[in-house]
Amino acid sequence: MEAALWIVRGAAVYAIIGVFFSVWFVTRGIGRVDPATTGSTWGFRAMITPACCALWPLAFFWLLRGRSWKGSES
């Protein structure tokens, strides 16, 4: 019971951080990771938001490196 509570709380915290990060990422940070997103629509940005919320540590890592790890513009 106690463990279940902590699992749900942990997941909630992870998701909330993901939501805040994603809002910033899809509106501003994304261009640093993938230049092809420049000028893309809001529909596209909304479409990738759920995965940003789930994979935000990965997107954050891409940002820290200043480019996507497969090698993008610097």
């Binding site: 993938d34 990738i48 995965a51």
Partner: peptide, 17 residues
């Protein structure tokens, strides 16, 4: 299934490689 559906866009295909 969520992870798969959410990453099904070309953006993720390109950036996850």
């Amino acid at each position: 299934l969520f992870l798969m559906a959410a990453t099904s866009h070309d953006f993720w295909l390109a950036n996850l490689t």
